[in-house]
Simulated scan of single mutants.
Amino acid sequence: MGMSLQTFSTASEAQAALGASGVRYMGGGTLVVRAVNEGDLSFSTIVRTTDPALSAIETSDAGVRVGASVTMGMVLAHPGLSYLAPAARAVGGPAVRNMATVGGNLFAPAPYGDFTVALLALDAKVSVSGSGEMALEAFLQERDSLGASALVTSVTFAAPATDSFRFLKVSRVHPKGAAVLTIAADIREEAGSVVQARIALGCMADRAIRTHAAEAALVGRPRTKEGIAPALTAALEGIDPPTDAIASAWYRREVLPVHLGRLLLG
């Protein structure tokens, strides 16, 4: 079957073209091109856009806006996004990072999607053409039901406080292997106790998830070995890790508390 490529100058034109059957949107191509190479017959037309707004990064006191077409390489090169550098660097090697986009990473299935885990811990919001703005957590839960015509245009979030954000990817092959698990956390403390916690997990379900039970167990306690113990136990609630060629579900459950503890204490 032949494959056609349509390029539009604006996101609105691309979004309109996605309304036809057998069409798939392509950002950097790391997911779509792989699907083509693997013989995916569910689509015969690829749509993309060169809209410059989708490749823009805006940082201000009001917050951060990252266009969906921004690549991991662009994130790494931006001085105002240094706290996201570990998450961007976790996405493949240099060639992949120069193609893989922020928007595309939102659709990556486990064991991929490391950057999305970081955005989830930052309580990001996603702008979707035709659906408006929605919380990233809600978007991840609903992304399969949004329909092929939905086009992500940007993500927005508040920059974390100094030293509050942390990220960890556990992989068997460094630095670019698929994840055994990924953890990101934004922890705020006052007077020696945690006053706010957001903890996101990758490879603990078929998409990135928040562990609200662990967050609640951490608030009001000191960030010590004894203080975080209830959160490590609570992190196992509501997870459904996959078994794949990288690791078994059993192994992922076993190592989650270990690595979460290291991240919180580190």
Rank of each mutant, 00 (worst) to 15 (best):
M204S: 06
V126D: 07
D163S: 14
I183E: 04
D240N: 11
R172Q: 14
K169Y: 14
T30G: 07
L232A: 08
D123E: 15
L263E: 11
A118E: 12
A148I: 00
D51S: 04
G92V: 02
K225Y: 06
Y83L: 03
G39P: 02
G73F: 03
D206P: 00
V255E: 07
V117A: 09
M3P: 01
V195R: 12
R252C: 01
E142C: 03
L236H: 10
K125G: 05
R252Y: 10
T156E: 14
A205M: 00
R97Y: 10
E137P: 01
Y25H: 09
H259F: 15
A247N: 02
E142H: 09
R253I: 02
R89M: 05
E215K: 06
V36Y: 12
V194P: 05
E133K: 04
A148P: 01
S193L: 06
P257L: 03
T101Q: 05
A17T: 07
H212G: 11
N37M: 06
A185M: 00
V102Y: 10
G147T: 09
D206V: 05
Y112N: 04
T10Q: 09
P230Y: 14
H259G: 00
R65T: 15
P79D: 15
I199D: 11
A159R: 09
T156H: 04
W250S: 02
V102M: 01
V23W: 12
V47Y: 13
R89N: 12
M74P: 03
S12Q: 14
M74N: 05
A234T: 03
D206C: 00
A217H: 13
P257G: 07
V33W: 14
V219N: 11
A200L: 05
V117C: 08
P257R: 03
L120V: 07
A138P: 02
V91N: 03
H174C: 01
H78C: 00
R48V: 00
Q141T: 10
I239W: 12
Q141K: 11
Q15S: 15
S154H: 15
S171L: 02
T182G: 01
V75W: 06
G147W: 14
V117H: 12
T153Y: 11
A35V: 03
G93R: 02
N37E: 15
